[in-house]
Each structure stands twice: as C-alpha cells, then as structure tokens.
Amino acid sequence: MKYAYFPGCSYHGTGKEYESSTQAVAKKLGMELVTIPDWSCCGATASHGKSHLLNVALPARSLGIAEEMGMDVTTGCAACYQQLAHANHKMAEDAGIREKVNKIISKPYNGTLKVKSLVEAVGTVDPETIKAQIVKPLTGLKVAAYYGCLLVRPQKITGFDDPEKPMFMDNLMTLAGAEALDWAHKTECCGASLGISNLDIAVRLINKIIKAAVESGADCFVVACPFCHLNIDWHQKNVNKKLGTSYDIPVFYFTELLGLAMGLSPDELGLKTHFTDTQKVLSLVG
C-alpha cells in the first residue's frame, strides 16, 4: 500500500499528535505514506464561501502534483479530505471547471486519482493484518466513535461509509479490542471554525455531543479530524465554564488508540499533548 500523503496545515500545530500517531501506525501496517512535495492548503473551511473556482483550484494544485507521483491520495484531516475529494470529483466530472483550473495551476490535474480519507485507507486494510499487530488489546475500554460532518458527507463525494450511521472507526476500535458504543451523535456537527469565530454558538453544539457520549457510558471519544479534536478536547473546558457542566472525557485520534493497542508508547503517539487528561484511560488499558 502506497499513498500520496497530504498532511494538512494542522499537522505540526494543533493536530500534531494526529500526525505522529498516523506515521507510527502506518509503519506498523506496512502502509507507505509519501508526502506530496510542496503541498499547499486545501482552502479549509473558508474558500468554499469565497469562490467556486478558488475552492477547486486550491486543492487541485496538490492533486496535480500527486497525479505526477502516480499514487492515490490519502489525508487524515476530515476537512482536507472533504476539500480534496470535492475538488477531485469536480475535476473528473466537470470539463468546464477543469479547463479553467488547469490554466491557473502549474501541474494540470486530469482527475485520474482516488482520494481516500485515512479512516478509509486504514479501514480497508485486511483485518487479519491489523489483528496481527494488536499486542495490547484495549479490553474494557468503551469508546464513542465520533465522525463529525465532513468525513461521511455528502455521500456522493465521500461514499465509503454510511452518512447517518458510519461504522469504519467502530470496526477498527473493535479490532483493537475496545467496545465501540452505539450512540446518538456520531455525525452531529461540532461547529468547526465557529469555535474561532463564534464560540457561544460552538459550545452549544459541543455540549450536545459530549452529553450524548457521556450518557452512553463512553470512557473516551475517538475522532478523525483535528478540528473535531480541538473543539471537543480544548473547548471542553469552555463548555464547562459557559454552561456549568463538569465534563472530563478524553478525546483520542483513532490512530492513537490503534497505536496503543499495537504496543506503541504514549510518547511516540503524542498522548501527552492533549488538554483533557488522558491518564485515566491510559491506566484503564495498562
């Protein structure tokens, strides 16, 4: 398995433990992640509200470079995935926009690649290959797999999992020995960048998600998006402060929990850079 890898702009900042755990788990699974040289921002949550053309051109620049590498693309960040997958769809289907975009990016993109989220890339590895790496099963750990919006919607663009009741991360957690809970808010929106622009709105959304997970008996969240992670991990204390709750539930990337089950050290996975305390979960799984 070899992929052209798109790290995304948070890879050395707010989402750095996602990056380190992704690299460590990929190595264990024999998955080669070749970083797209000189990749650029996908446009994130902003370009789609500015211009349809800009919104395709920004991710297409990196897709053009990847096409030259001749490898399908994968990325961990759900927002980057959405942007890349949307641009990929447009460049493959819409000759008009393809022509315009290819005039303004240096390496033209012909829409020949597949774009996969890291959840799909890891989730389609042979289960036996994953099981063979599990040396410290997460027995007794109850996880609420939280997919958020952009990983599974819209289905026309994403397509690998169910948009209302996705199971890919649940299945990976089951392989790692944890108990994946059936809970209500798997795909509710965390507010994404409203956490920066309008925190008073975002805390209400985050509160609903945490409440549902806690009520279902979860020990922790498992996520696949740096923005979901930031909103639920960092803003959890703002929810407590503004809404009078007293949540204390850790939020892990799916690669961190897979890595733990594969015997990788918490340091290697970046587990010490979270804001909610991860220790109680770490001691649960030894």
Binding site: T14, S40, L58, S193
Partner: peptide
C-alpha cells in the same frame, strides 16, 4: 465574525501557501 475569520485564513494561505494558525 465568520466572514472575518474566512478572510484571515485565506490571507495567510495567500501569503505562505498554507494556513498559519
């Protein structure tokens, strides 16, 4: 506030090629 955030994000992308948090 939303529009301002969009503009701030895109202006860092225009300057550096990537989002500068």
């Amino acid at each position: 506030y939303v529009e301002t955030m969009y503009n701030a994000l895109l202006s860092t992308v225009k300057s550096y090629g990537r989002t500068y948090e």
